[in-house]
Amino acid sequence: MSQSSYTPPKVWSAPGEEGGGKFGSINRPEAGARFEKQLPVGEHPLQLYSLATPNGVKATIMLEELLEAGHKSAEYDAHLIDIMEGDQFGSDFVDINPNSKIPALLDRSGDKPQRVFESGAILLYLAEKFNAFLPQNPAERTECLNWLFWQMGSAPFLGGGFGHFYAYAPEPLEYPINRYAMEVKRQLDVLDKQLANNSYIAGDEYTIADMAIWPWYGALVEGKVYDAAEFLQVQDYKHLARWTETIAKRPAVIRGKMVNRTWGDKSEQLHERHNASDFDNKTQDKLES
């Protein structure tokens, strides 16, 4: 339907799959499990169920950073959840995350398994569990959390707003693309100004704030989401570009981006991760050779 001809009805009803764009086949207005499905469980206490979207990458980067820093008990199993196939609506997954979104974490190290859902909550949970990547000084901790929650509130305008209407909607519409492009460029400017005087997002220390923000905004600056780098003129944000490049070179970030990835170069796809050696032996190019 064209931009000028739609009049909202008095009572909304869900459109058919053909009217929902790329995700029309899985989006519904009801929550809860749609079918029974048992999730696999590996040998480690930490069980991650995810996909290498920007939100999923936050969790795998954090886990790989913890291991890189010497926290051996951060070993984990990462199981693939194919959101386009609707895996997130299986009964076991919904038991861990009633919101049916990836990533979802189950920590079996205690007397009772602890579920953790929402990517920001997973970052904070792991930071507190391992006393890592979260400053202990109250003022510095607060600044880190300021930016962690900034990402939680800002990224929906980038993904569900700009990304959807620019890249996924059934037809391009000028008003929503302009509306969300304006907001995303404002957000890029917020980050660029913050990074003009700081090595990392929350100061001189690499923290979970960087791990939350980089998978979304770093990917945008690198031109790896929505094919919108030229449209948004991301090269104008010099400080953000410097930070993006710095984070991208970290070994744990390189590994974290590979976990639960099912697209792109096969040497960068590790569909499931159960051991550190999987990065050398079980990427898709090795499995298919």
Rank of each mutant, 00 (worst) to 15 (best):
M258G: 03
G256S: 06
K224D: 04
G24L: 08
R273M: 11
G21W: 00
P29N: 07
N137C: 10
R273H: 15
A248G: 12
P176Q: 05
G42Y: 07
E230G: 02
P8C: 07
F133Y: 05
Y6A: 14
T207G: 01
D95W: 11
K266T: 09
K58D: 07
G20Y: 00
I213Q: 09
E272A: 03
E272R: 10
A69D: 02
G120D: 08
K282L: 12
Q3K: 10
Q3C: 10
L63W: 13
A228D: 07
E17L: 04
E85G: 08
G16N: 12
A139D: 13
E43I: 13
H271T: 14
K72E: 15
P113H: 02
A31I: 12
D210W: 05
I81Q: 05
L67D: 11
K257W: 12
Y6I: 11
L63A: 08
G86D: 00
N275Y: 13
Y6R: 14
N99E: 05
P172Q: 09
S289D: 08
Y49I: 09
S4C: 14
G32N: 04
L39I: 05
Y226F: 15
F165Y: 14
L67R: 09
E118N: 03
G264M: 01
A219Y: 07
N137P: 02
D210A: 03
R250L: 02
D77L: 01
G56S: 05
K72I: 04
I177T: 03
Y166P: 10
L188Q: 06
E171W: 02
E65H: 02
L173Q: 13
S267C: 09
E85L: 10
S25E: 14
P170N: 11
S25D: 07
W243N: 06
T244M: 15
P156D: 00
W214D: 07
L270Y: 04
G256T: 09
D92Y: 04
Q235M: 11
P40L: 14
A219L: 12
Q269E: 11
Q136M: 10
D95S: 15
M258R: 02
M152H: 04
Y76T: 11
T142D: 06
P54Q: 00
L148I: 01
N260H: 09
D204T: 07
E288V: 02
I102G: 09
E230H: 03
T262C: 03
D227C: 07
G264D: 00
A52E: 01
D210R: 01
F279W: 15
Q235R: 08
G90Y: 02
L173I: 02
R115T: 13
S4W: 13
K112L: 13
G42D: 08
K282G: 10
Y166F: 14
S2E: 14
V11Q: 15
I254F: 05
L124C: 01
P15T: 12
K22C: 08
M62H: 06
E68N: 00
K286N: 04
E140L: 06
D189P: 09
W150A: 01
I247D: 05
M211A: 04
N146C: 08
W147T: 00
D192H: 02
